[in-house]
Amino acid sequence: MIIVAGWLAVAPEARAAYLEGCAEAVRLARAAPGCLEYALGADLLDPGRVTVYERWESDEDLERFRGSGPSDEQAAQILGASVARYRISAIEAP
């Protein structure tokens, strides 16, 4: 299993529009083969922060969906980011 998690920084006054512009990508990801979870959300404390969380069955599933990445318009709105890919070898109950 692959987890992609982290955050994106956008202008606080543009965050709602940024997330609205990502809605179709979220719908497409959730329908993509191998997608177990895909979520982008507004941080509760930082008005310019977007939380990223994805779970995929495999690298191949992730790469097939990801393609060339965000649109140029979306990429231009990202002021900073810290997102990483994690390879999970086991899953346990909390």
Rank of each mutant, 00 (worst) to 15 (best):
M1A: 12
I2G: 07
V4D: 04
A5F: 00
W7F: 07
W7E: 06
W7K: 00
L8T: 03
A9V: 02
A9D: 11
V10S: 05
A11I: 07
E13T: 13
E13Y: 01
A14E: 15
L19Q: 04
L19Y: 04
L19A: 04
G21F: 01
A23E: 13
A23W: 05
A25H: 10
V26C: 03
V26I: 15
V26H: 00
R27H: 09
L28E: 15
L28T: 15
P33I: 08
G34V: 11
C35Q: 06
L36Q: 15
L36M: 13
L36Y: 00
E37A: 15
A39G: 09
L40W: 05
G41K: 08
D43A: 10
L44P: 08
L44F: 09
L44K: 09
L45C: 05
D46E: 15
P47T: 11
P47Q: 10
P47A: 15
G48K: 07
T51K: 01
T51S: 14
Y53D: 02
E54V: 14
R55T: 13
R55D: 05
D61H: 13
D61I: 03
L62P: 01
E63C: 00
E63P: 00
R64N: 13
F65M: 08
R66A: 13
R66T: 11
G67N: 08
G67V: 03
G67E: 09
G67K: 07
S68I: 04
G69A: 08
P70R: 10
Q74F: 00
A75Q: 13
Q77W: 05
Q77I: 02
I78K: 03
L79E: 13
G80W: 04
G80Q: 07
A81T: 08
Y86C: 14
R87L: 11
I88L: 14
I88E: 13
I88C: 11
I88Q: 11
A90V: 06
E92I: 09
A93K: 14
P94S: 14
